[in-house]
């Protein structure tokens, strides 16, 4: 409850941190869209976007400019408020996850110890879970407000997919929490950084389940059923144009980055650089190294997402549901039981 007492310096510090994190996330997102196109191109023996600026580096700016300049169309039969609320909600929900991710160790500036984490709540993982479950509303509201059958169908698909995979995701997380004994992401990362093995060593099956579910939650191929063009025209953002469409598209990439950050923090040591003793350098430099390490891990995960997207075709919807309910959930339950048994055996 320190947030509510008037420690102005703390509030300003947190505000600056929030602004930095949100801006960096958006910038990285911008370049993730570029990276997606480049990765797709390279995996398919093409050069990819290379016209705007050197190596096409200005391409995302051009894309963003194009989206902003486009005519904004709100269908007459659409529910106007909800139509606008949808993409905003999708974007907000995906950005809100960044609040509990520890980006690095503490920084010492102007005689203050600044934690590189917006909110160290002791239920960090549950918070992420809550925010992720909110993300569905952006899609559902947008799909319904468009007053289009295809949008509605794909919004329902997105929602049912998200709910189905959330269960397996939660069960995989419970197994992880049994080994860490804490819900706070800061503690989880600090434990991994303090000489222990990374959690993926203890929870390999849990990680695979979590990774697959994260892909499903982000609506990434092979789980991008809500955007299946061949049966739903364009998906839940069919009626959207201009920057509102851009928000939906960006939200997907922000989600991808955030789930990469979460996976890196929970299973791959977060800001922990392996085989490197952070105490040998000054704390500020150690924090910077930590931020860099986490960013590299995020980039690797994002690349993995893209690599999978450009390799594997889309599931059929019944296959998706079968995988979610008949494979992922039993596997996650088994993983949970196994973890519990092993913990008991060790004690």
């Amino acid at each position: 409850m320190t947030l509510l007492s008037f420690d102005w310096a703390l509030i300003i510090e947190k505000l600056i941190l929030i602004v930095i994190i949100v801006l960096t996330t958006l910038l990285i997102t911008l370049y993730t869209t570029f990276g997606e196109r480049k990765v797709a191109a390279i995996l398919q023996d093409r050069p990819g976007p290379n016209r705007a600026g050197p190596f096409g580096l200005l391409q995302p700016l051009a894309d963003g400019l194009k989206l902003i300049m486009k005519e904004e169309i709100i269908p007459t039969s659409a529910s106007k408020w909800l139509f606008i609320l949808g993409p905003g909600l999708a974007m907000t929900a995906s950005l809100m996850t960044s609040a509990v991710i520890p980006w690095g160790t503490d920084v010492h500036l102007f005689g203050r110890t600044i934690a590189l984490q917006v909110a160290d709540v002791n239920i960090g993982i549950l918070y992420i879970f809550a925010v992720v479950s909110m993300g569905v509303y952006g899609i559902m509201i947008g799909g319904w407000a468009s007053n289009n059958k295809f949008s509605l169908m794909s919004a329902l698909r997105a929602a049912s997919q998200a709910i189905s995979y959330e269960i397996a995701m939660g069960l995989a997380l419970i197994a992880l929490l049994m080994t860490t004994g804490s819900l706070s992401l800061k503690t989880i990362v600090a434990d991994q950084a303090a000489g222990h093995w990374w959690n993926v060593v203890y929870q390999p099956l849990g990680f695979i389940i979590f990774f697959i579910c994260a892909m499903a939650e982000c609506n990434r191929t092979p789980f991008d059923l809500p955007e299946a063009e061949n049966e739903l025209n364009f998906g839940y953002h069919q009626e959207y144009s201009s920057m509102k469409l851009g928000f939906y598209l960006f939200a997907e990439y922000v989600n991808m980055i955030m789930s990469s950050a979460i996976m890196a923090s929970m299973y791959f040591g977060g800001y922990d650089l392996p085989f490197f003793d952070e105490t040998t350098v000054a704390p500020n430099i150690a924090a910077m190294i930590g931020v860099g390490t986490l960013l590299i891990k995020i980039v690797l995960f994002v690349f993995l997402f893209m690599w999978i997207r450009w390799t594997i075709p889309r599931f059929r919807y019944d296959q998706l549901m079968n995988l979610g309910w008949k494979t992922m959930i039993p596997l996650a339950l088994f993983n949970m039981l196994l973890t519990g048994a092993l913990i008991l055996a060790k004690l």
């Binding site: 390279i42 398919q44 023996d45 390799t311 594997i312």
Partner: peptide, 15 residues
């Protein structure tokens, strides 16, 4: 399959 796509990263581009 992913190894196949990965190997294509190092192929010559016919573009």
């Amino acid at each position: 399959g992913m190894m196949i796509t990965f190997s294509h990263m190092f192929k010559k581009q016919p573009t």
